[in-house]
């Protein structure tokens, strides 16, 4: 069965060649992956497999580094390095921090608070 990542040969529209620099958080995800890869905690194959395993909807709608972040979270939980509860609690905490300093965009202030 063709997974959502397996797009070779499919019909698609024009290629957008506009580029922009990565934002800091995207670079940070890349940096974390580089470090845990160098330490042998994860492999490139594994990273790719986790991204592919996000499911069609996530694969289609998330941006590149959003996919890597979602995959990394699942990977760390399945390796028992983190727990879902720890991660959820920390996300709530950071959300509150950002809200307090006015850095949380309105679309993120609602349902996940």
């Amino acid at each position: 069965m063709r997974g959502p990542h397996d797009v070779g040969g499919l019909p698609e529209g024009p290629i957008e060649t506009e580029t922009h620099d990565l934002s800091f958080w995207e670079k940070q995800i890349d940096g974390i992956r580089a470090v845990i890869g160098a330490k042998g905690i994860v492999t490139t194959h594994e990273n790719r497999r986790y991204v592919e395993g996000l499911g069609d909807d996530a694969y289609e709608t998330l941006t590149y580094y959003e996919r890597w972040t979602a995959a990394l979270a699942r990977q760390m939980i399945e390796k028992n390095i983190l727990t879902q509860d720890e991660l959820d609690a920390r996300v709530r905490e950071i959300r509150a921090r950002l809200a307090a300093t006015g850095e949380l965009a309105p679309e993120l202030s609602g349902e996940h608070a």
């Binding site: 958080w25 972040t69 983190l82 996300v91 950071i94 993120l108």
Partner: peptide, 12 residues
């Protein structure tokens, strides 16, 4: 911050 995943990334 506009992406939930940016927050998730910081949490990670």
């Amino acid at each position: 911050v506009h992406s939930y995943y940016q927050i998730l990334g910081v949490a990670l």
